[in-house]
């Protein structure tokens, strides 16, 4: 009954996601046309730009404000303007030079955690997604739905239990107990199957004939998976990687419970303590601390945006 032809879904394949503007019928620019034409242009297209620009302003004001506060040497209450009056990097210098706040160390910690979690969870998710996409086995449908349901529960709902669990684990294996980055990474890996649905949608869009042909040619399952299928889904792996990277960067509760030593904090916990200690006077330094972590993500965004648009929907449309 529920057997669905994998090709039949409305999956957006990467090639369909190219900027639609490229396919657009030749568009005549309004300049030099009559007023009537210009009016028509605005009625049909121009207002869309207007909305877009307003949306952009809405989206970037908080970001600009933070950037401005981070560059404002006064760094206190008066820093509430969107464009800075004077520019200085004092806050950044202060951020990296105070031995009480080893920000460089925190930043490195978060990168270690994020990279480890992203790699391991993409690996696990892609493996599982492949199994769900290609094999028909007992309990397949049930497992997929269970997975969806379990994901509805945020892991930190069990924070107290996790805290106790890792206290106990730490007694046996101190290397992965509380207050270790390794322990924190392992906790986050509980969500390693988080991207299965998304990736499965993409696997479904790859014709099965490809698998069969490869197996016919004598490829083993391992070769088929790693050498043929996986390279084909690299875009979605990049997208899910980015999504889980953002997730790790923003993870706050478990970090605050697990990483209490100053040395092993992440920026999610460190700057929060910074701001909390003195909300008004540390604002400049906090802003500087806030500007830095998203930079890797922002740099990747323009390259990945079209896959993100396709990827998120492909995963969802299927299921």
């Amino acid at each position: 009954m529920t057997q669905v032809n994998p090709q039949a879904g409305q999956v957006v394949s990467p090639s369909d996601l190219a900027d639609p503007a490229q396919h657009a019928e030749p568009f005549e620019h309004p300049r030099g046309r009559s007023k009537v034409r210009r009016g028509r242009w605005f009625k049909e297209v121009g207002w869309r730009h207007l909305v877009g620009i307003i949306a952009i302003i809405y989206a970037i004001i908080p970001i600009l404000y933070t950037l401005s506060a981070s560059l404002n040497p006064v760094g206190s209450v008066s820093g509430s303007s969107i464009l800075p009056q004077t520019i200085s990097v004092d806050n950044y210098v202060a951020l990296f030079t105070d031995p009480e706040r080893p920000f460089a160390r925190w930043f490195l910690n978060t990168l270690i955690v994020a990279v480890a979690v992203v790699i391991a969870s993409i690996f696990c998710s892609a493996l599982a997604a492949y199994a769900f996409s290609r094999f028909r086995f007992k309990g397949r449908r049930g497992s997929l739905l269970t997975l969806l349901l379990i994901q509805m529960f945020p892991q930190f709902l069990a924070a107290a239990a996790l805290f106790l669990l890792f206290t106990q684990i730490g007694e046996v294996m101190p290397a992965i107990g509380l207050d270790t980055l390794a322990g924190y990474i392992i906790v986050l890996l509980g969500g390693a199957l988080g991207q299965v649905w998304l990736i499965k949608g993409f696997f479904d869009s790859i014709p099965r004939e490809l698998d069969e042909a490869a197996l016919m040619d004598g490829a083993t399952h391992t070769q088929l998976y790693f050498k043929i299928i996986l390279p084909l889904v690299t875009p979605i792996l990049a997208v899910t990687g980015l999504l889980s990277f953002i997730g790790v960067l923003g993870e706050f509760i478990l970090a605050s419970l697990f990483l209490r030593d100053n040395e092993i904090k992440t920026p999610a916990v460190g700057p929060y303590g910074l701001l909390d200690a003195d909300r008004t006077n540390n604002r400049g330094i906090f802003a500087a601390a806030a500007v830095l972590p998203p930079i890797p993500v922002i740099l990747l965004l323009p390259y990945l945006q079209k896959f993100i648009v396709g990827g998120i929907t492909a995963g969802s449309v299927k299921g």
Partner: peptide, 20 residues
């Protein structure tokens, strides 16, 4: 294909839920 992620899920999500 399923075991690595499932083990992690069971140990660090399902078990803590039961423990809760």
């Amino acid at each position: 294909y399923l075991v690595p992620g499932t083990l992690l899920l069971v140990l660090f999500v399902v078990y803590p839920i039961l423990m809760t």
